[in-house]
Simulated assay, not measured.
Amino acid sequence: MILSRSKGVVLSVVLSVLMISGCATPLSSGQKQEYRGYQAKGLAVEEKNPGAAAALGILPGFGSFYVREYGAGVVNLLLWPASILWDPMSGYQGAQSINYYATKQKIDQLKDKEITQLEDQLMMETIDNREYVSAKREIDNKYSAY
């Protein structure tokens, strides 16, 4: 009896750790606002659909699997149907997070490329410092969320 009880405690601890470590970290309010700004400028990337992630969360572990949270997906599969209480939200937040970071990466790449081209023009003396500063400001504004 004690042996089966300790197995239950160990299993509970392992499942809890897996569930906590696999859950998607929601975006902060500042990150959400920044992403909305990128959406307004047409710069946002949507790798994962948050609505689809939430809908898939109703199925056993599918919301977590969809947003690449495989450990959480397995735990949610094992804890289904109780996981219906949290997996849709976890999937939604995971999709938002994936989209935010994909957008940040895309914007950084595009901005770096344009600034490198601008710096090359400055080095080749096809533009002067004043033109460089003005053009760099335009690039910064173009890739800003606000």
Rank of each mutant, 00 (worst) to 15 (best):
L59I: 07
I84Q: 00
P81A: 02
L85N: 00
S64G: 02
G57T: 12
K48M: 01
E47R: 15
A55S: 08
W86N: 03
G37Y: 14
V74A: 03
G61C: 01
G37S: 12
F62R: 05
A82R: 03
Y35D: 06
P60I: 13
A72S: 14
L77F: 12
L79V: 01
G37R: 13
L79A: 01
W86Q: 01
V75I: 10
G73W: 09
A40R: 11
F62Q: 08
P81M: 01
V67W: 13
A44G: 06
E69G: 07
S83Q: 09
K41I: 08
R36P: 05
V67M: 11
A72M: 14
Y70D: 13
I58D: 04
A44F: 06
L78P: 06
A72C: 12
G71T: 15
L77M: 05
L43C: 00
I84K: 01
E47W: 14
V45I: 15
W86I: 07
S83L: 05
Y38N: 02
Y66P: 05
G71H: 11
N49T: 15
S64T: 08
A53P: 07
F65R: 04
V74G: 03
P81Q: 07
G42S: 10
I58N: 06
Y38Q: 01
L78E: 05
A55P: 06
G61M: 00
Y38M: 03
R68T: 08
S83G: 13
R68I: 00
G51H: 10
N76K: 14
L85D: 00
A82P: 06
L59P: 04
L56A: 09
L56P: 10
Y38C: 05
L78T: 10
G73K: 07
A82W: 09
V67L: 11
R36H: 14
F62K: 07
P50L: 06
K41Q: 08
N49C: 09
G37E: 13
A55G: 12
L85Y: 01
G73H: 10
L43E: 00
W80N: 05
L59Y: 08
F62P: 02
F62T: 11
Y66K: 02
L43M: 00
W86P: 02
Y38P: 03
S83E: 10
Y35I: 11
K48S: 05
